[in-house]
């Protein structure tokens, strides 16, 4: 019983990082209705900038976090300008394929600049885990959960209570009409991309500081985990992204405990498979086709 609860706690903690990754994904997918496969690699670039700062200049975790988030945001803008801005509306597949090409480009660039496979990454805290009855709570895990909940609330606030949020929701609703009311759609989309990648940067920093190392494979890992968590949670739903991440984390933690680490990654795909079969809309998303009848865009 204690194991069950401890595993669930660990799962929730790790799951909150998946949720953060899914949050950035959801923001891009919700606004653009397009899949950015380069999302994870943008975060990985931020991580590499961070590790250089750490290894070369001995920067502390906060400075590394700041540069990593900034680096991820800039890499995100680079991807947006290259793969998304030039593609016309409705060319979703084209931008997905080009974001795949940029994924490879970013990954190879990282390998060329820093050819060793792994680089060290600073830990966030080195303190002993908190004891809570028979259970152990890691401090960096708690920070992860706090960041996930705080950022979700911040994004909800930004979307529903600010002018920029109004613009983004207008673009989600109807991009042509958003142009017509005078929203600078191109700038708004670019900023949304930067914000999404910055959120990914927060998630990436928290994960890397727990792992205490970064590899070029981190990009693929982040894209996959974020994508799976987003699809389980429901495409385009902000609370769904966090819930999906938490569920994924809990399932993975239990599977690792009962079936071993090889089964852990398999479990993620099985959960996704079951959801796609039984409840394709995800936890909080709308199933495809059940949308309010929106007027056709020209």
């Amino acid at each position: 019983m204690i194991d069950l609860v401890q595993n669930t706690i660990d799962g929730v903690m790790i799951g909150s990082s998946y949720g953060l990754l899914a949050l950035g994904f959801t923001l891009i997918f919700g606004v653009m209705r397009r899949l950015n496969l380069s999302y994870g690699p943008s975060i990985m670039i931020g991580g590499y900038v961070g590790t250089v700062l750490y290894v070369q200049y001995g920067a502390g975790p906060l400075a590394v976090a700041g540069t990593m988030i900034l680096g991820a945001a800039i890499a995100g803008i680079y991807v947006e300008r290259l793969c998304f801005a030039p593609m016309r509306m409705g060319a979703g597949i084209a931008s997905m394929v080009s974001s795949f090409a940029i994924w490879m480009q970013l990954e190879q660039a990282a390998i060329l600049v820093l050819p060793r496979h792994t680089y060290p990454f600073p830990p966030l805290t080195t303190g002993a885990p908190l004891e809570w009855g028979p259970f152990l709570l890691r401090l960096d895990h708690l920070i992860m959960l706090g960041c996930a909940l705080g950022l979700t609330a911040a994004i909800q606030f930004a979307l529903y209570r600010t002018r920029f949020g109004l613009a983004l929701r207008a673009i989600i609703g109807n991009p042509v009409a958003a142009h017509l009311v005078g929203i600078n759609v191109s700038v708004a989309v670019m900023l949304a991309f930067a914000a999404a990648s910055a959120i990914g940067g927060v998630a990436g920093f928290l994960v890397l500081s727990v792992d205490q190392q970064v590899t070029p494979m981190f990009g693929m890992w982040a894209t996959l985990k974020g994508l799976i968590a987003m699809m389980i949670g429901g495409l385009g739903s902000i609370p769904g992204a966090i819930l999906g991440g938490l569920l994924l984390g809990v399932v993975e933690a239990h599977c690792q405990w009962y079936f071993g680490p090889q089964i852990r990654d398999l479990a993620a795909y099985i959960v996704l498979f079951v959801f796609l079969l039984v409840h394709p809309g995800g936890l909080l998303g709308r199933a495809p086709g059940s949308d309010i009848a929106a007027p056709r865009t020209p």
């Binding site: 002018r163 109004l166 613009a167 929701r169 207008a170 989600i172 609703g173 109807n174 042509v176 009409a177 958003a178 017509l180 009311v181 005078g182 929203i183 309010i292 929106a294 007027p295 056709r296 865009t297 020209p298």
Partner: peptide, 23 residues
């Protein structure tokens, strides 16, 4: 421009649609 097919923002309230018009 009041566009063909109206193109209101379907998932925003009437009030928010008007706010967006004054963006």
């Amino acid at each position: 421009l009041v566009p063909e097919n109206r193109l209101v923002f379907p998932h925003m309230s009437v009030y928010e649609n008007l706010l967006a018009g004054a963006y």
